[in-house]
Design a protein around this nucleic acid. Structure first.
Length: 543
RNA sequence: GUGCCUGUAGCUCAAUUGGAUAGAGCACUGGACUCCGGAUCCAGAGGUUGCGGGUUCAAUUCCCGCCAGGCACGCCA
């Protein structure tokens, strides 16, 4: 990776001079060079000399280095580097040899977990879940690619009072089918999907439960509704190509006795008390927030209680690092969860949260209202059916997670240049068609040969960009946002299309140049395949 | 009221965590294959980065104060 090579050289010069501080290697405007560094600007106050003088000191030391074809100092004291052609050829050769391993660092299996898509199994996934699922999936794929030992986990709140409401709601819908009218419980579930499940139940058991209600029947309705909703959810996940390594049910956490264990630890630390018949955690003693209920006055556990136990379980499972991916509406949960972890003597670094902002759907420039009323566009499933898997995934990955996401349905469906998914996939398809054309013209492709023929700035610049994928992936693991990768592949496509329009790849009059360019395209193809795989979208040979 | 996120071209978004003249796409104006895929490319125009201070060689980025929008402040999850 070029950045590291430059960094190492500058650092060793610094060490020689007896200094050690942080500085940057960046890609500047192309007219300045391939890379630039602010080492002299930062270093001025260490060297106690003007930045330009410091810069010149570095240039002198590096002038005979074969890595660079040109070094100069500009502006307030930036050092600009031009990488030698030969070195670019080496990089290309290496990518063609190692393929996707070129971007994989040597890393030991750090155990890391992403929790996302967690939901009450009380209804189908919403569009908001969609964004979270894609963020979690892409981050997981990238970390896995980089050698981390990644677990993708979904947590299901299958135990609380919400599920009881769900069961009762289904029972009401079921009775409706027999002309028996009951009121849906307050805060019950009104979605039409329960009517469908009720119909299925009617077919299976007939009138067995009409106007019948007791604890056993309640339990049956709870389980039946959850089972069927989980089927719906899994169906949606399949359409998205989104698989989890592990699904943990809230009920299993309780059954394993983890709640009791955590409560015991809190009691030993004198962190709980009773009030109004409920059990409270002294959050106010840990941080500047209100105390919270752990056990309700009716004896049931709150979400907070079981979530602490669940995260204690994660700790026992010996993850080095755990990320919870939430919608921003859950941000209030974060400080008290962190405080709880501290109270359980779990290191502060263990748990971190990735928050994403909301999604707005737009159709013909109008905001699509997403309410629970029937007939309106609410579910992730409907979205995938309308725009397809690739567009769904790409669009959800496209924005910085900290900004609201405007999902333009017409744009996502359009098969034109405006649609970024088609733009990047078209670039890939185009590469394949060039290889096809080469065969037609009788130009044989010889891998890793004639690379020295590549000398245009546009060609070297493309190679540089392929090399940059390493940095992009590292950047993504720090910013924890998938848009870094969609931006990269979009920019790469711009560069490729531009190159393609300007230079003729296949020229029967110049076979060695043609072959060199085919090698460049081959490396691009490898890169596209890696990126598409990480984004979870398809790599079409033709479109 | 308190806390978190956001505010960048008419619209949708970037900006290498403090770097050089703030960049793309759409829309607008004008151009380019008898040719490897015109689903593409090239050029032009478009900006007081919400407002006001501060920190320094350098601020869209960091700090403070306002303004506007979103979200959260439950014995919901």
């Amino acid at each position: 990776m070029l950045r590291t090579l430059i960094l190492e050289r500058l650092e060793s010069i610094l060490a020689e001079a007896g200094y050690d501080f942080e500085f940057n290697i960046e890609i500047p405007d192309e007219k300045f060079g391939d890379y630039s560094s602010n080492v002299a600007l930062i270093g001025a106050r260490y060297f106690k000399k003007p930045p330009i003088e410091v810069a010149n000191y570095f240039v002198e030391k590096l002038n005979s280095d074969p890595l660079f074809s040109e070094i100069n100092v500009a502006g307030p004291g930036f050092i600009n580097f031009k990488i030698s052609k030969e070195y670019y050829h080496d990089i290309l050769n290496e990518i063609l040899s190692k393929e996707d391993k070129y971007w994989k660092p040597d890393r030991k299996g750090i155990k890391i977990q992403f929790e996302y898509g967690s939901a009450n199994p009380t209804g189908p996934f919403t569009v908001g879940h969609g964004r979270q699922l894609i963020i979690g999936d892409v981050l997981s794929k990238v970390f896995k690619f980089l050698g981390y030992d990644v677990t993708r986990e979904m947590y299901l709140n299958d135990a609380g009072r919400q599920i009881r409401l769900l069961g009762r709601s289904l029972w009401v819908r079921y009775n409706e089918l027999f002309g028996k009218a009951y009121d849906l419980p307050e805060d019950g579930y009104k979605g039409i999907y329960l009517i469908d499940i009720a119909k299925k139940l009617k077919e299976e058991v007939g009138e067995k439960y009409v106007e019948q209600w007791n604890d056993d029947i309640e339990k049956f309705f709870m389980e039946y509704s959850v089972d069927n909703i989980l089927k719906m959810m899994n169906n949606t996940l399949e359409k998205l190509d989104n698989t989890f390594d592990s699904v943990v049910k809230e009920s299993s956490i309780i059954e394993k006795g983890l709640v009791d264990e955590v409560l015991e630890m809190f009691k030993n630390k004198n962190l709980v008390y009773e009030k109004d018949g409920a059990l409270w955690l002294k959050v106010s003693e840990l941080i500047n927030e209100e105390d919270k209920v752990l056990i309700r006055s009716d004896g049931t556990y709150t979400y907070f209680m079981t979530d602490i136990a669940y995260h204690y379980d994660k700790f026992l499972r010996k993850f080095d690092k755990v990320y919870d991916i939430f919608g921003s509406d859950h941000h209030g949960h974060i400080p008290r969860m962190k405080a709880s972890m501290k109270a359980l003597n779990i290191p502060d670094k263990f748990l971190d949260f990735i928050l994403h902002q909301f999604v707005t759907l737009k159709r013909n420039n109008q905001i699509v209202k997403m309410s629970t009323r029937s007939g309106e566009f609410v579910t992730l499933d409907e979205l995938i059916d309308e725009v397809g898997k690739d567009a769904t995934r790409y669009f959800f990955a496209m924005n910085d997670i900290n900004t609201h996401l405007n999902f333009d349905l017409e744009l996502a469906k359009s098969k034109t240049v405006d649609n970024p998914v088609f733009y990047v996939q078209y670039a890939y398809a185009r590469i394949n068609s060039v290889f096809e054309k080469a065969r037609e013209k009788g130009i044989t492709f010889r891998l890793k040969e004639d690379l020295e023929e590549l000398s245009k700035d546009s060609e070297l610049s493309l190679i540089k960009m392929l090399d940059e994928l390493s940095f992009v992936l590292k950047d993504l693991t720090e910013k924890l946002s998938p848009h870094i990768l969609t931006n990269y592949v979009y920019n790469l496509s711009e560069k490729f299309h531009s190159y393609y329009a300007k230079e003729k790849i296949l020229d029967v009059e110049n076979l060695s140049l043609s072959n060199a360019r085919l090698n460049l395209l081959k490396a691009l193809k490898i890169t596209y395949e890696v990126v598409f795989r990480l984004l979870g979208i398809s790599a079409p040979q033709y479109m």
